[in-house]
Nucleic acid binder design. Structure first.
Length: 624
RNA sequence: GGAGGCGUGGUGUAGCGGUUAACAUAUUGCCCUGUCAAGGCAAAGAUCGCGGGUUCGAGACCCGUCGCCUCCGCCA
């Protein structure tokens, strides 16, 4: 099933072990014995996964990272081994010697890769005992997250977690090989670097040798990889650890791993083509799944918002919102009429078959639940219409009476409504409408069973605006970062109407997550300098922060661009896991804590002295 | 910074004003030679996260606090 050739080579050549060193305790892994090995004398070592003591005969399922093998100890054949094995308990570390044989007729276990054979042990050795684990290693049950994290080393023994970390390794290995073959080299960039004013909050590291100054941990190697392009490396990548001191989420950790890529002499299409090929290959060859859409659909940012309310839409299902402002704005429903008059859009999200055979009461309850959800997303209400199961049934819902028959027919045609559907009307300011569509769409997909973790759907989102207007600061904020190039045809807009200018940015969405994002960069110093006043920075400040970049830009910068992909998220999706913690060996809790080790913790006064740092009590404590 | 949920033997849950705090599983002991979530019998194991309050009486209700989870803000 799996390729263990390297390990097998080591096992096969025991005679090559260094003189004086202990011989390896296993000739085979617990995952590899098959019928063809019958008759072979073997040694296994691992953990007792389960034991079934039948009195005269003991079965041990022995587990190592490669699998589980059943070991049989027969009292009449090997009384000493039987006595010793009788003392074994779950998670004891043992070493056995015995002979492989086919299982007796009718006792094969098809659930197990090694289920056709068993090892008849004549020697068993206890290498180490174990306390009873605080939770099941050998069963998939819910375990309190605190307990899992406190005993993470035991949590990681569970087959599910081992599978996840093995998958993670394979994904990264595959990508490294994929890029290597295409002329990329991996370059490590510093973890101790310079703080940047924009973006996420930095983690700061005090400098002992330069009291009062700080390094920042990188939020991404963005500047450094561009400088590598200036340096002429042309094709760079890095499996890079990145740090952002922001609140954690199910798909966000304080530190995370990013596949960072930068290429010279490329256009947007070149980067996208490479990543698309890579993502398809990883999905198919490593995860054994097939992307639902090949080639990946490309959606403009604006379309993504209009149809899905999100710039990272889940494309495993359709459920696209439809604009009905022209129809509903002419209905007799006062809210729609006035909203349409104020330029607020009216959109319909169709919930296929959700009315179904619901009674009037059930239908109202369903609609109320959806309305509550819509309100939580910012809506003031949620109008709805339900189509009866039969064509001739009345249209149900409080707003039906405000629409003429012709208007209803137009609505049904526009939205593709079928008997049994519920139409959800969303109308408000544009940003609110998007948010509500996104929230309802994800909810409906879950309700309707459209979110199969075994399906995977990628989509490119392109043509992002260069800037968002920051109302508080009264300035433009870059929608990606200040090195993103404008689409060539929109370059003049920088001077006339920056809000309309589109960037050369591309994001890759997958199952409702953003799994990659990048852009073609500015390589012209004059254009780069134009960006700073737009985003409310003085040139003096820009030189302070980015002087090294601006200076580098005077020494022959090739056109370049790149992309960065959140590997934790990607592996999470490929593993079908709902949370990023499941694919990270030692993650943090939502409060940023490592429960096992007790990090973060207070520093010794001596350490603080050396760093010229004085800790003042937090404000909340100071008050009391 | 905010909203919501959860916290009961090792683990997962039930109990929602008065019970001997229940069940499953794990654990320990005994029995058992073809099991594989083994089985049978027995035993042990919880001051119900912590602090305060209401009440004749609190695991339950109220307030606070701590921890974990989900989400909003935040994450160029």
């Amino acid at each position: 099933m799996l390729c263990f050739s390297a390990i097998l080579d080591r096992f096969a050549s025991k005679s090559l072990t260094i003189a004086g060193a202990a011989a390896m305790l296993k000739t085979h892994t617990c995952g590899e014995l098959r019928l063809q090995h019958a008759g072979l004398r073997v040694e296994l070592a691992g953990w007792v996964y389960r034991r079934r003591d039948q009195g005269g005969i003991i079965f041990l399922d022995v587990r190592d990272r490669w699998g589980i093998t059943q070991v049989v100890i027969d009292e009449s054949a090997s009384p000493e081994a039987h006595d010793a094995a009788g003392q074994f308990r779950n998670e004891y570390v043992i070493h056995i010697k015995g002979t492989v044989r086919a299982r007796p007729e009718g006792t094969a276990n098809s659930e197990l890769a090694t289920g056709e054979v068993e090892v008849v042990a004549d020697e068993v050795e206890l290498l180490n005992a174990s306390k009873t684990p605080p939770f099941y290693i050998n069963q998939e049950t819910k375990i309190d997250e605190t307990v899992r994290m406190k005993y993470r080393y035991l949590d990681l023994r569970r087959p599910r977690m081992q599978d996840n970390l093995v998958l993670r390794h394979k994904v990264i290995k595959f990508i490294r090989d994929f890029l290597d073959v295409r002329g990329f080299i991996e370059v490590e960039t510093p973890i101790l670097f310079k703080t940047t004013p924009e973006g996420a909050r930095d983690f700061l590291v005090p400098s002992r040798m330069n009291p009062g100054t700080f390094y920042a941990l990188p939020q991404s190697p963005q500047q450094l990889k561009q400088l590598l392009m200036v340096a002429g490396y042309e094709r760079y990548f890095q499996v890079a650890r990145c740090f952002r001191d922001e609140d954690l989420r199910g798909d966000r950790q304080l530190e995370f791993t990013q596949l960072d890529i930068e290429m010279s002499f490329v256009r947007r299409e070149d980067v996208m083509a490479l990543i698309e090929e890579m993502m398809i290959a990883v999905t198919e060859q490593v995860a054994g799944m097939t992307p639902m859409h090949k080639p990946f659909p490309r959606i403009t940012y604006q379309d993504a918002l209009e149809k899905y309310g999100s710039d990272k839409p889940d494309m495993r299902y359709d459920l696209a919102a439809v604009d009905v402002t022209d129809i509903a704005g002419k209905s007799a429903f006062p809210v729609f009429v006035s909203n349409a008059g104020e330029g607020k859009p009216i959109k319909v999200l169709r919930a296929p078959g959700m009315a179904g055979s619901l009674s009037g009461t059930q239908l109202r309850k369903t609609a109320e639940e959806l309305e509550t959800l819509a309100r939580s997303a910012g809506a003031k209400g949620l109008a709805w219409m339900a189509l009866g199961e039969k064509e001739e049934d009345e249209v149900k819902g409080p707003i039906g009476k405000f629409f003429t028959v012709e208007q209803k027919v137009a609505l049904f045609e526009r939205t593709g409504a079928k008997p049994g559907d519920i139409l959800l009307f969303i109308s408000d300011q544009r940003e609110v409408v998007y948010n509500v569509i996104d929230t309802l769409r994800r909810h409906l997909a879950n309700q309707l069973g459209y979110t199969d973790p075994n399906k995977i759907a990628f989509a490119w989102v392109i043509d992002f605006p260069m800037f968002y207007w920051n109302e508080e600061e009264q300035r433009w904020d870059p929608s990606q970062h200040m090195f993103t190039a404008t689409l060539p045809e929109d370059l003049p807009l920088l001077d006339t109407d920056p809000g309309k200018a589109r960037g050369s940015q591309y994001d890759l969405a997958c199952n409702g997550y953003e799994v990659a994002g990048g852009s073609i960069r500015i390589h012209d110093r004059a254009i780069q300098e134009k960006m700073f006043p737009l985003i409310g920075q003085t040139m003096e400040r820009a030189r302070e922060q980015f002087g090294h970049m601006l200076e580098a830009f005077e020494y022959g910068v090739p056109p370049h661009g790149g992309i960065a992909s959140g590997l934790d998220r990607l592996v999470m999706i490929l593993a079908g896991e709902p949370n990023i913690r499941e694919v990270i060996a030692f993650p943090k809790t939502q409060q940023g804590a490592d429960i096992m080790a007790g990090a973060p913790s207070e520093a010794e006064p001596k350490q603080l002295d050396e760093l010229s740092i004085k800790v003042v009590p937090p404000k909340s404590e100071a008050k009391s």
